[in-house]
Design a protein around this nucleic acid. Structure first.
Length: 488
RNA sequence: GCUCCCAUCGUCUAGAGGCCUAGGACAACACCCUUUCACGGUGUAGACAGGGAUUCGAAUUCCCUUGGGAGUACCA
């Protein structure tokens, strides 16, 4: 299948790129890479009301950030364009006409009110709603008369007729790439509209025509499309064109097993990026929802995953999006970042501080000593306030439980006097502080307490980065000033 | 309501009849390391939804129940 593999992702720009869509895009991308095929981006912007350029840009940016670059699309073009559905409106009527001519579709003049009544009786009888087909046998005279009255028909697909033409029974089945054989009784599928009375195609029709014209070979999408697949299968057959392969992925659910929505927090790729997740970590994590590496090594680049990817190995069940593992994975990716990249990546989260306060060397050192506990990049914001400004804000608890004690005061007094003569380099400070601790240890004061007093006075906290490096970055003057102001 | 899909530790998963007294990862817990927090290391605990059937033998096959998800538009 190698040269002919063509897959696509077809988001509708009615919102920012959702992680669910991102995962579908990823699996399509992996499938294309694995088989040396093409990955195509098509924007389904037929719902002009809800579509916007801002969302289109967000989709482009997010996909690129995840490393899912497309071979054909609205921006890069390709030989099967245009790649925005709104520019393809004139392509659909001819195929609807073809279906009409073959008898696989017919005009329907039913009003919304009539349809509503049909639906109501169906629900009352606890039956599945299936369109009555009342317009299927309309004579040419009747249709002409209705038109004369100003009625405009929609075009419906004749399900049973198409089914009979291509299959012995009313059962329609196909072999799904991830779920295996899937079947449906087509008697339960009503004759659905393919062209609305306003002349635009419905989703199910447009998708088939687009996929056919773009020569899409494999359609990998969410399992919420399974019921659409049966309708689309029939359209392909009615059109007499080659039917692509289908693969349906389980859904991504929120921890409460409901659909992942805004009320659960971040849903768009760009939301995660804003929060300080690395796209490399995000895409890696998302790949693990439904797929697992054959060697057990979970941290992998998209390229490595592609080499190991087999669509048949993808899990057919839903999976829950839990932050725990994503967080861990993000921290792993942060650890792998080289220092210059990290320094830049962190800047957006440090805007509230005056970075000019530190030299580049000091900023570098600060990042080096504060990077370790970072789960997401934005964690840095609350970890570094004491590096900036002359004074420091002391946490209430630190003041009452650490700095106010007799022991701490003693330590700080001694520190204030001794440190006057110290040279504030990390190497020297390390040595001096070691001796300093020992000195107090002999008086029965634990090293931990000694260091807490100093840390508390200088950073206002009891926890944080390596204190020797902190003092060095601050320098003697600021350190002593802060220590002195903590003396009672 | 009707139709379809799914069902292994809390979560993501390995497992395609004997290799399973079910393996890994995250989270949890304990201990170690340590001038704090953390990182790291070593351990502990934790699952085949329930019931039938097939078989010498079932997490793996079939059926039912239960639970969860999806679809049911002249939306996409």
């Amino acid at each position: 299948m190698s040269e002919n593999v063509r897959v696509r992702i077809a988001p509708s720009p009615s919102g920012n790129l959702h992680v669910g869509t991102a995962r579908t895009a990823l699996f399509n991308y992996l499938f294309a890479k694995k088989h040396g095929g093409k990955f195509i981006l098509r924007i389904e912007d037929t719902d002009l009301e809800r579509s916007s350029n801002e969302y289109i840009k967000n989709i482009f940016d997010s996909l690129k950030a995840l490393g899912l670059n497309w071979d054909e699309g609205p921006d890069v073009g390709g030989q099967y364009g245009p790649y925005s559905q709104s520019e393809r409106f004139d392509m659909y009527p001819q195929y609807a006409q073809k279906l009409l001519d073959a008898g696989y579709a017919y005009e329907c003049f039913c009003t919304p009110e009539e349809l509503e009544i049909e639906k109501e009786t169906a629900t009352q009888n606890k039956q599945a709603y299936v369109y009555s087909k009342k317009c299927v046998e309309l004579s040419d005279e009747e249709k002409a008369a209705r038109r004369a009255k100003g009625e405009v028909p929609a075009i419906r697909f004749n399900v049973s007729k198409t089914q009979k033409a291509f299959h012995p029974t009313s059962e329609l089945a196909f072999n799904d790439l991830v779920k295996g054989e899937l079947k449906q009784d087509t008697d339960l599928i009503g004759d659905f509209v393919i062209m609305k009375s306003n002349g635009t195609p419905t989703y199910n029709f447009a998708v088939v025509i687009d996929d056919m014209l773009m020569k899409i070979s494999h359609i990998i999408r969410g399992e919420d499309h399974i019921s659409n697949t049966f309708k689309q299968l029939l359209i392909y057959e009615g059109l007499g064109t080659q039917v692509p392969e289908f693969g349906h992925l389980g859904m991504i659910l929120a921890p409460d097993r409901s659909k992942l929505s805004k009320r659960h927090g971040a849903t768009a790729v760009s939301d995660f990026v804003e929060q300080g997740y690395l796209t490399e970590a995000l895409v890696n994590f998302i790949a693990l929802l439904g797929w697992s590496p054959s060697d057990g090594q979970e941290i992998k680049s998209v390229d490595e995953i592609a080499a190991d990817f087999r669509i048949g190995d993808v899990s057919s069940s839903n999976s829950i999006f839990e932050y725990d593992k994503l967080n861990w994975m993000n921290s792993q990716y942060i650890k792998q970042l080289d220092i210059e990249t990290l320094k830049d990546a962190l800047r957006p989260y440090l805007t509230q501080y005056d970075l000019g306060f530190l030299t580049d060397a000091q900023y570098t050192r600060m990042v080096e000593i504060t990077r370790e506990p970072l789960t997401i990049l934005s964690d840095i914001t609350n970890d570094v306030p004491y590096f900036f400004g002359e004074g420091v804000e002391i946490e209430l608890e630190v003041q009452s439980e650490v700095l106010s004690t007799e022991t701490s005061q003693k330590v700080l007094r001694e520190f204030a006097s001794q440190a006057q003569d110290w040279e504030f380099t990390e190497e020297n400070l390390h040595e001096k502080l070691d001796a300093f601790r020992t000195q107090f240890k002999e008086q029965g004061i634990k090293p931990k307490e000694t260091m807490w007093a100093i840390r508390g006075a200088v950073t206002g906290r009891t926890r944080g980065a390596d204190i020797t490096a902190v003092l060095t970055i601050l320098g003697k003057e600021k350190t002593l000033k802060r220590v002195t102001s903590s003396l009672a």
